[in-house]
């Protein structure tokens, strides 16, 4: 960043206080001759592009793929996506920063979203977030985020551990989840969405009028 010799108020939105770096070249569509893209990533993005009537539709899938490779949507990742899709990195960045699941800062690879929206917070979701952060401590491998409703309020309070929905959680589960992930195991098999039955029948049997 160039030195900005202006008064500062201390804003709190990342990016708002950043000037352009005037030493950089303008960011047009990256020339394939100048950007290296890992072969597998290129193939995956190209396959996605072929799946849609208009190639730009593949942008979100492409960013998912690049994030998987790079761990986050780094400038390098975005440039690679833009290069393969023949768009500007600006277009890709505009989309990447719009969606919550794209990480625009370097983060740990183990991603845990803890739902803190209404239904979960009514059942202690905020507390689970704190507990989860405590359980992971300062391990840089973990990326723990409070998240908006994940669509699993029946399991509230719940979390998505690398995409695996688990709940209802108690404080003590957080430690187990972190340990399991560190050991390379499933997050919390017994409380996973995979094994959760539908409430319908049980509800109707227990007290439903029908």
């Amino acid at each position: 960043m160039t030195e900005v010799t202006r008064f500062t108020h201390g804003s709190r939105i990342p990016g708002w206080d950043d000037a352009a770096d005037l030493r950089k070249a303008p960011a047009g569509v990256p020339d394939p001759a100048q950007v290296h893209v890992p072969e597998e990533l290129r193939a995956e993005i190209e396959a996605k592009m072929a799946a849609y009537p208009e190639e730009q539709s593949a942008l979100i899938p492409a960013l998912h793929a690049a994030q998987k490779v790079h761990g986050w949507c780094s400038p390098e990742a975005i440039e690679q996506v833009a290069c393969v899709m023949r768009i500007t990195p600006g277009q890709a960045a505009a989309v990447a920063t719009f969606y919550d699941m794209f990480e625009t800062k370097p983060v740990g690879r183990q991603t845990i979203y803890v739902c803190t929206n209404i239904s979960c917070s009514l059942r202690g979701g905020d507390q689970i977030l704190t507990a989860m952060k405590e359980a992971a401590g300062d391990d840089p491998d973990f990326n723990i985020r409070g998240f908006e409703c994940l669509g699993a309020c029946d399991m509230a309070p719940m979390a998505s551990v690398n995409g695996d929905f688990v709940g209802p959680l108690e404080d003590s589960d957080c430690r187990t989840i972190v340990d399991n992930i560190k050991a390379g195991n499933e997050a919390l098999a017994a409380k996973s969405l995979k094994v959760r039955p539908c409430a319908d029948e049980a509800g109707k049997a227990a007290g439903g009028s029908e």
């Binding site: 939105i13 708002w16 770096d21 400038p75 960045a93």
Partner: peptide, 26 residues
């Protein structure tokens, strides 16, 4: 159609900018 100047972030945090601090030169 240079697609260099874009909106980043969302909602009230939305701001006009370019990719990774590149200047808007077109």
């Amino acid at each position: 159609e240079d697609h260099q100047l874009v909106l980043l972030e969302r909602g009230a945090a939305t701001f006009v900018s370019t990719f990774d601090g590149h200047p808007y030169v077109a």
